[in-house]
Each structure stands twice: as C-alpha cells, then as structure tokens.
C-alpha cells in the first residue's frame, strides 16, 4: 500500500516539478511585458476564440451522437464507438496532415472554394481543433448520459412525456454537470492543440499564432523567457479548466 501511495505522489511530483522548473527562467518584468504585448494578446484572443468555436461546434454534433451511443442499438454503433479513439491513436501531426491532404482532393478543393477557406486561416485552426477534440467530446458526453438511468426516461414517457420532452426535462438536467465538465475539458484540449493546427493553419505570426504555436515560435527563436511566460499563461488557463471540471464532476456523482 505504502509503495503505491509513493507512486501516486511521484506522478504528482513529476508534473509539479516540471511546472515549478519553469520558474528557473522566470523573469517577472519580462512576464508582464510579454503578457501585455500586442502579439501575446492576439495569441490569447485567437486561442480562446478558436477553442470556444471548435468546442461549440463539436458539442452540437457530439451531444446527439453521444446520446444515441448511450441509448440505442443501431448498425454501425460499434464502428462509431471505435472511431472515437482515432484522434488519440493517430498523432496530431498525422491528423493535421490527413486534413491537409483532404483539402487537396477535388471535394476538399470545392469546399475551400465555395464554403470556407480552411488552410492557413482561422477556419483551419477551428477545423483542426474540432477534428482533434470531437472523439473526446463524444466519449465524455456518452459517459455523462450513461450516468442517467434509462428507466427515468421510461417513467417520464409513461407519464405522458414525448421522447424530446423527457430528454429536455429529465436526461439533460441530470447529465448537466457531466455535460459542462465535458465542455470544459474539450475546450481545454482544444486550447492546447498544436500538431494538427500547425499542419492545417501553419505558424504565421499575428495570423494563425495560437498560444501553443506562439510557444513553438518563441522557442524556435531561442526566446526562453518569452516561451516560459506563454507556457505559464497556457498552464494557468488549462489547470483552472481542469479544476472546474473536476469540481463539477464530483458534484454530479454526489448529486
């Protein structure tokens, strides 16, 4: 037992140690300057916007999809569940490359001409993040719906509620905390997305420079202190999202 507790604390120590080690290169004045610079502002704003839009679109598709996976049997269900892991097993860079290749086939070119210009633009960032987080969103939402006993919907329906009414008055309120937690974690994952974004949108200062891209660019130009400042901003955003999500999830279990 004692050894296992030591192992658990070691996990904490590894991640905490890495974060703390950033402060070796921490320069308070530079941090403030970096934080307040126009370029950082741009990165933060672009990251927050892209992650929010990508998460919102992902959830629009993921909520009904997750509900179907949680409640119904249908042809293709197993395949649909398996493919949710696709973004996890394929490296983000490969995922981005796949998207890029798609836009070079006739359908992709048609979409680019008539719908949105994805490659090397804001839409590309959103798309890369959307593709990366969609599977995760569906899996988390499915878990949230699985927590709501199906029987409650059956009871609601015997009482005269249509399936839609039962969903909005019983399932959704009871899955609420799980759904919000899924939104936050999906958003945090989108915020930190790098590989696919780099492939699809490239790394152009003040254009496709999300926070992770900015970190990559600063590091490439050997600006360690600037890199550290940006990392700390990203870590702060991500960790606060994680804590809020954990808090909500623990509330949904004990509700």
């Amino acid at each position: 037992m004692r050894a296992s507790i030591v192992a658990a604390l070691a996990v904490l120590a590894i991640y905490a140690g890495l974060i703390v080690s950033l402060f070796w290169f921490f320069d308070g004045a530079l941090f403030t300057r970096t934080l307040l610079s126009e370029r950082s502002f741009f990165s933060i704003r672009l990251s927050l916007m892209a992650a929010t839009v990508a998460t919102a679109i992902a959830l629009l598709l993921a909520i009904p999809a997750a509900y179907a996976l949680s409640r119904y049997r249908f042809p293709g269900k197993e395949a649909a569940e398996t493919v949710l892991e696709f973004p996890i097993i394929v490296s983000p860079a490969a995922l981005g490359a796949i998207i890029l290749i798609f836009f070079n086939n006739p359908l992709g070119e048609w979409l680019q001409e008539h719908l949105f210009h994805f490659v090397f633009g804001f839409a590309g960032i959103v798309l890369a993040q959307f593709i990366t987080v969609l599977g995760l969103a569906v899996r988390m939402l499915k878990a949230a719906f699985d927590e709501v006993p199906r029987e409650l919907e059956t009871v609601a329906r015997t009482l005269g509620a249509s399936p839609r009414h039962a969903f909005f008055t019983v399932t959704l309120p009871l899955a609420k905390n799980g759904l919000v937690a899924a939104f936050i974690l999906t958003w945090a994952k989108a915020l930190g997305e790098f590989g696919a974004t780099l492939m699809v949108a490239g790394s152009m200062a003040m254009r496709t420079e999300t926070l992770p891209i900015a970190i990559f660019m600063r590091l490439s130009s050997a600006d360690i202190e600037g890199t550290v400042a940006l990392i700390l901003i990203l870590v702060a955003l991500g960790l606060s999202a994680l804590f809020v999500a954990r808090w909500l999830l623990s509330r949904s279990v004990h509700a």
């Binding site: 006993p149 029987e151 059956t154 609601a156 009482l159 249509s162 309120p173 009871l174």
Partner: peptide, 29 residues
C-alpha cells in the same frame, strides 16, 4: 408509443426524478 398508452409505471428502482421535489415529481405527468 409509450407516452400514448396511458400506463402507470413503478419500476424496481422507482424512477423518482432526483432533480425535482416530491410535488414536482407528482406533477410531472
């Protein structure tokens, strides 16, 4: 469909809606 059968149903786990008060459970239908 279930909602048009006019049934009263008490399942094994009772299926009370935990997010509603007793009176709102009773009024749900």
């Amino acid at each position: 469909p279930t909602e048009r059968r006019q049934l009263g149903y008490v399942p094994q786990q009772l299926g009370l809606f935990p997010h509603l008060s007793v009176i709102d459970n009773l009024r749900y239908g």
